[in-house]
Write a protein that binds this DNA or RNA. Structure first.
Lengths: 193, 193
DNA sequence: ACGAACGTGCACAGGGTTGTGCAAGTTCAG
DNA sequence: CTGAACTTGCACAACCCTGTGCACGTTCGT
C-alpha cells in the first residue's frame, strides 16, 4: 500500500523525494498524483493512518498498576516500530513538528495520566513533573526503538529492552524492571482468548 | 564565528539553506564561499570542530569507578549540548550518517570501555553487551538533551536529569542514581584548582 | 469487444538551492 | 594614502523537486 510505503521510506529519509516513495510502492511518481493531490497530503495521511493504528493498540490499558501500565504501553509500541519511528524522524524536521506533536498527544496523555497516579503513589521517581517524566519515557523508548531497528534485534529481545527502558526511566532498578517483563506478557496474552 | 553559527542553525534545521547559516553569522551567502568551497565542507568542518571540543572535555575520566565515570561523561555532555545535538540531528539525515557515526566514535569507545568493566564488576545490568549498553546510554542521554533544550531547563536541572538518565539506563534505581549527582560535582570541581 | 479505471512515459513550468563571476564598497595595517 | 583582505549585491547556470498536462498502454468487469 502507498501509505505503508511512505512510512517505510520516510523512516529512513524524512524528506525523501516522491520518486522514492512511489518506487517503494511499485509505482511511478506520476501515478501517486492519481491518489493524492500533493506530497504533503500523502505524508499527512500516512501519519494519520499510522497514528490511529498505534493508538488503537494502546486502548486496553489497566490503570490500577501504573508501572505495569507503562510497561504494557512500551511493549505495545514495540509492535508498531515503523509507525512510531517514522513519526519521530519527521518530528525532527521543521514543517511537521506541530503536526507530529499533535499526533503523539494520545500516547503522551496516556503516559501523563498514568505517571500522575504513579508519582502520587510513590512507586516511581518523583523528582520531575508527570509531563516531564512522560516525555523522558517517550524519549527513552524511541531511542531504544531506534537502536533496535538499526541493529535488527529479534522481536523478543527488542520487546524486553523497550519495557526495561521505560521502567528504568520511571525510576526502577534493572532487576525490578526486568521483573515486569513476564508480567506484561501475562497481561497481554489473555487478551487473545 | 561561522562554524558556531552553522552548528547553531543546523541544530534547529539539519538542512537549512546556506543563506540561513550565513545570516546567523552576520554574513551573506556569497561571503561564506570566501572561506569554504562548498556547503558540505562547511558542515563537515563545523562537525569536526564541535567533535574535538566535545572529546577534549571528556578526556579526564577516571576508570576506577565505572558508574561515576558514566555519570561524569553524561554531565560533560550536558555542557556541550549544542554540539552534541547538532550531531544527533544530522545523524538522522541520510548523507551524513556514516560521517556522524565516525565522529561519535570516541564517545562510544569511552562508554564501551567503561561499561565493559562495569558489567564484569556486576554493578550494573548485565543483560546486554557493553556495546549495546553504550548505545542505549548514548540514546538516553541524547533524548534528555533534546527534551532539555526544547523546554529550556536551567543548567543545574538539566545536568541532574542527564546524569540520572545515564545511570538509570545502566541499571540503577532512581534513588541510587540520584546519589551520584553530588559525587560527580565533587569529582569535577577539583579539576579547576 | 467495450469502456472505465488505473498506470506509464514524457515533457514542461515554477520554485528553491547551490556554486561561480564580476564590479563596487568598507576596513584596516603599513 | 595605498593596497590587501574582506564583504556586498547582482546576475547566472545548473540541479533537484514538485505539480500538471497529454498521449498511450494494460487490465479489468460487463
Amino acid at each position: 500500500m502507498l501509505l505503508d510505503a511512505a512510512l517505510r521510506v520516510l523512516t529512513v529519509d524524512p524528506d525523501a523525494p516522491l520518486d522514492a516513495i512511489a518506487a517503494e510502492a511499485g509505482l511511478t511518481r506520476r501515478a501517486v498524483y492519481g491518489h493524492f493531490t500533493s506530497r504533503d497530503e500523502l505524508v499527512e495521511e500516512a501519519l494519520a493512518a499510522g497514528a490511529s493504528r498505534v493508538t488503537a493498540t494502546l486502548q486496553p490499558v489497566d490503570d490500577s498498576d501504573p508501572l505495569l501500565a507503562i510497561a504494557t504501553i512500551a511493549s505495545s509500541l514495540w509492535g508498531q516500530v515503523s509507525q512510531v519511528r517514522a513519526r519521530a524522524q519527521l518530528a525532527v524536521r521543521g514543517p511537521y513538528r506541530a503536526r507530529i506533536d499533535e499526533i503523539l498527544r494520545p500516547l503522551r496523555d496516556l503516559l501523563e495520566h498514568i505517571t500522575h497516579y504513579g508519582i502520587q503513589g510513590g512507586t516511581m521517581r518523583s523528582d520531575v513533573s508527570a509531563a516531564t517524566l512522560a516525555r523522558l519515557i517517550e524519549g527513552a523508548v524511541l531511542s531504544v526503538l531506534d537502536e533496535a531497528t538499526r541493529t535488527g534485534l529479534d522481536a523478543e529481545e527488542g520487546d524486553r529492552l523497550v519495557i526495561i527502558a521505560a521502567l528504568s526511566t520511571a525510576g526502577l532498578s534493572y532487576v525490578d524492571a526486568a521483573a515486569y517483563v513476564p508480567r506484561v506478557h501475562a497481561e497481554l496474552a489473555p487478551a487473545a482468548r
